[in-house]
């Protein structure tokens, strides 16, 4: 092949750069579709619901009159359900992830378990709802309570936490583990002093992303029978007569934000649409602030962890 002349080289470069530009424009377009839709949605809900953003809206119970209806029981319910979810899912998920990474022997059984954790993440949430209805609500007799809902959502986000834990652990270099074992530490001492603390930023991020997913779940909560009209609050957690009183709140009936929204959108009176939009916006703010906290914590905790 003849060597290219300078002219030809320039032509080749120009063709290459044209493709560069085309792809750049295309990529930006695709990116903005996703972003614009979510921004439009949030802005739209904000504008539609703007007349409801008063203190009363947050402090009122549900009502037959749209203008007097509020989301008090819904946001309190959401927070309490999330508390139960986190308390159940975090220890289970972290322990499972730790076991798989640090203790489990690499054999076919571990392999099957690993594949099925991914499968677990793909199970439709309504199926978890059915499972929970049978087991938590009836078999264990927890009823249509905060406890049942929290445990259901905990199952739902367990795979997310397990996967996040494993990835965070895998990012820790082998030389740290070896350094610890070389002074005579046991596996557990290595986990307790090194693996768990160094994996914590990644684990926390996974936990919060899981919770952000759980707080918006509607289907499994409806399945286990959350009520849509709750005009009272559960007892304040951890304040009753110990020991049983401390946990009275977990057995309380409840509603959560997505259910309240779903309820309002299915009413014939268009005034409730305003409520639904306002509540939708509040839910979005809750989810986005959880993500913001996750990002902040990750940044903050990673600063001190360098290899």
């Amino acid at each position: 092949m003849q060597p290219l002349t300078t002219e030809q080289i320039r032509a080749v470069i120009a063709r290459g750069k044209l493709k560069d530009t085309i792809f750049k424009a295309l990529g930006l377009f695709c990116l903005s579709i996703g972003l614009l839709v979510i921004v439009a949605l949030i802005v739209d809900m904000f504008i539609k619901g703007s007349e409801r953003f008063t203190l009363d809206f947050f402090m009122n119970f549900a009502s037959r009159r749209a203008t007097q209806a509020g989301i008090l029981s819904a946001w309190v319910g959401s927070l309490l359900v999330m508390l139960v979810t986190a308390l159940a899912a975090v220890p289970l998920g972290v322990a499972a992830g730790l076991y798989l990474e640090e203790y489990a022997k690499r054999n076919w059984l571990t392999h099957i378990i690993e594949v099925n954790i991914s499968n677990l993440a793909a199970v439709p949430s309504i199926v978890y709802g059915l499972l929970a209805l049978g087991i938590f609500v009836y078999q264990f007799g927890f009823g249509q309570s905060i406890l049942s809902a929290g445990l259901t959502l905990a199952l739902l986000i367990l795979p997310i936490i397990i996967v996040a834990t494993r990835e965070a652990i895998r990012a820790i270099p082998a030389m740290i583990r070896e350094g610890s074992m070389a002074v005579g530490a046991t596996r557990w001492q290595t986990c307790r002093y090194h693996i768990i603390p160094y994996a914590m930023p990644g684990i926390l991020t996974g936990v919060i992303i899981g919770l952000a997913r759980a707080i918006g779940e509607t289907a499994p909560i409806i399945t286990i029978g959350a009520l849509t009209f709750i005009a009272f609050l559960p007892p304040v957690p951890f304040t009753g007569e110990p020991p049983a009183g401390l946990f009275e709140w977990v057995m309380s009936p409840f509603t959560v934000m997505p259910i309240q929204i779903f309820n309002w959108t299915s009413r014939p009176d268009p005034a409730f649409e305003v409520n639904a939009a306002a509540a939708g916006f509040v839910l979005m703010v809750m989810v986005l602030s959880m993500n913001a906290v996750a990002i902040y914590l990750r940044y903050k905790m990673r600063k001190n962890i360098k290899w």
Partner: peptide, 15 residues
């Protein structure tokens, strides 16, 4: 390992 110490190729202090 409690009787035999080790220093590695790359310094590996804990964070």
């Amino acid at each position: 390992r409690m009787r035999v110490g080790m220093v590695f190729q790359k310094p590996n202090p804990f964070p």
